[in-house]
Amino acid sequence: MPGGGPEMDDYMETLKDEEDALWENVECNRHMLSRYINPAKLTPYLRQCKVIDEQDEDEVLNAPMLPSKINRAGRLLDILHTKGQRGYVVFLESLEFYYPELYKLVTGKEPTRRFSTIVVEEGHEGLTHFLMNEVIKLQQQMKAKDLQRCELLARLRQLEDEKKQMTLTRVELLTFQERYYKMKEERDSYNDELVKVKDDNYNLAMRYAQLSEEKNMAVMRSRDLQLEIDQLKHRLNKMEEECKLERNQSLKLKNDIENRPKKEQVLELERENEMLKTKNQELQSIIQAGKRSLPDSDKAILDILEHDRKEALEDRQELVNRIYNLQEEARQAEELRDKYLEEKEDLELKCSTLGKDCEMYKHRMNTVMLQLEEVERERDQAFHSRDEAQTQYSQCLIEKDKYRKQIRELEEKNDEMRIEMVRREACIVNLESKLRRLSKDSNNLDQSLPRNLPVTIISQDFGDASPRTNGQEADDSSTSEESPEDSKYFLPYHPPQRRMNLKGIQLQRAKS
């Protein structure tokens, strides 16, 4: 015994090295194993092979420090690593049964499904019991997946119906949107047309105001020219009257000059006056001389005659003075006559000038009245044309509004008919989907599995289990394997941990 101590140590070291070499393959693929292994699927088989106990299973599945599946799978690998070579062998058998691809990844061999460990530990009855539990578990999982698949199909059909409904609603909204954009385009076109009409109206108003201003300026210029013409006519008439007055005065002077006595007659009258003065002096001298030589009687007679002569001279002087006064009065009367005649001529000139001015103003008033009548006639014609244009424009607008209203009513009726057609199509689609759903539900009910399987069917299934373990590994792997896509769409199922009653199965096998 003492001599065998070193050999035992060498043997233990060799086993430990082999164990480390075995687990080295697992550690190399630890990331892939932790990512894809579900500990809840492996722990029943590991407990059946007595590699882990209930406490280890509870620690792996329910520990609060292991929230994710990767953490739980890593903890399970750590626990199996502590179990040595047996933990490695049982772990590979569980991978061979549940995850053939991972088994091939770790060992590089094809899975054979021999279950040597569980046969050694529990015997064939334990293997049968384990396989029966796994089959029931798989059936329950398949039923749950079928239910989930039916629910998802129903949800899918519902979503398809909602999608069709949303599509129809979208078509309806597109119809309304198209109608909205069309009405918006019509409104924009009408606004552009309105702005264009306003611009045209403004341009016409500006043109009309400009023409009116030009016409008023032309009328004012015409009036100024007419006033200048009238003033020139007035000056012409005044000059004609002055010329006529000057002509009359010149004719009067000419007549006075023609009626003036001649120079010879004046000289002859002056000679006669001198001769008479000479004779008068001679007679006076004779009379003076006679007075001195005459007697007293003759002197008395001469005195009487002288007195008579003096009286006659006085009378004559009075007559001469009277004649002079009369001549002066006649001259003054002639001057007054000439003055009055001049005033008369001036008044006649003024009267004729005023008459011509009156005629001029009368003509001017007639011209202004004619212009006013023409302006009123043009204004009435413009008003009439404007009223006709406004009436025609309003009539066109009324007809346009009428046609637009008819078009809008027809478009609304068309839209309502399209919407009604879309709604009826939606109703038809809904009815078809309901009919299809009812038909599929009836087919699913016919094809669904019963909840409680008979014992004979279970025994028959387990009677055929042994050949399947040898020759149909691919079928078992397809039913027991969970793909990543299934984990996305289906909830994980945790079967209840219970042991099955095998009395009925044993009785059935005894009868057979």
Score class of each variant (00 low, 15 high):
Lys143Leu: 06
Glu13Thr: 14
Ala73Cys: 06
Thr128Val: 05
Cys28Ser: 09
Arg86Glu: 15
Val89Thr: 04
Arg47Ser: 07
Asn25Met: 07
Thr112Tyr: 14
Tyr11Thr: 12
Met32Glu: 13
Glu121Lys: 14
Glu19Ser: 08
Tyr88Arg: 06
Arg86Met: 13
Gln141Ile: 12
Gln55Arg: 09
Lys109Val: 00
Lys69Ser: 04
Tyr45Gly: 11
Val90Leu: 06
Leu95Arg: 01
Arg114Met: 01
Asp53Pro: 05
Phe91Cys: 01
Ile118Thr: 14
Gln140Trp: 03
Gln141Met: 14
Asp146Gln: 13
Arg75Gly: 02
Thr107Pro: 02
Ile79Gln: 12
Gly123Phe: 15
Phe115Thr: 09
Pro6Thr: 14
Glu7Leu: 09
Val51Asn: 08
Asp78Lys: 00
His129Asp: 11
Pro39Thr: 05
Leu46Cys: 09
Lys145Cys: 04
Leu61Glu: 06
Pro111His: 04
Ala144Thr: 11
Ile70His: 07
Trp23Gly: 04
Pro6Asp: 13
Ser94Phe: 03
Cys28Lys: 01
His31Tyr: 03
Glu57Thr: 04
Gly5Asp: 15
Glu101Lys: 00
Ile70Asn: 05
Met32Leu: 04
Pro67Ala: 11
Thr112Gln: 07
Glu19Phe: 12
Arg75Val: 04
Tyr103Phe: 08
Thr128Asn: 04
Leu15Ser: 04
Glu110Tyr: 07
Asn71Asp: 04
Ser68Thr: 12
Arg86Gly: 11
Ala40Thr: 06
Gly87Thr: 08
Asp58His: 02
Cys28Trp: 05
Gly87Asp: 00
Thr107Leu: 00
Tyr36His: 13
Asn25Ala: 11
Leu42Asn: 00
Val120Ala: 05
Gly123Lys: 15
Lys83Glu: 01
Leu131Pro: 02
Asp10Arg: 07
Gly4Cys: 11
His31Glu: 05
Asp58Gln: 09
Pro111Lys: 09
Lys109Thr: 08
Glu13Gly: 12
Tyr11Trp: 13
Cys28Leu: 03
Gln141Leu: 14
Val90Tyr: 15
Ser116Leu: 13
Gln55Leu: 09
Glu54Trp: 03
Tyr11Val: 08
Arg75Ser: 01
Arg86Lys: 10
Lys143Thr: 10
Gln48Ile: 07
Ser94Ile: 12
Tyr36Gln: 13
Gln55Tyr: 09
Arg72Asp: 04
Arg72Asn: 03
Asp10Ala: 11
Ile136Glu: 00
Met12Val: 12
Arg47Ala: 08
Lys145Phe: 12
Cys49Gln: 15
Phe97Ile: 05
Asp20Ser: 08
His31Thr: 07
Leu46Gln: 12
Leu131Ile: 01
Val135Arg: 08
Thr82Arg: 07
Pro67Val: 14
Glu121Cys: 13
Gly4Leu: 12
Gln85His: 13
Glu110Leu: 14
Asn62Pro: 08
Leu46Thr: 06
Asp78Ser: 02
His124Ile: 08
Arg86Gln: 06
Ser68Gln: 05
Ala73Gln: 02
Met142Ile: 14
Tyr98Thr: 15
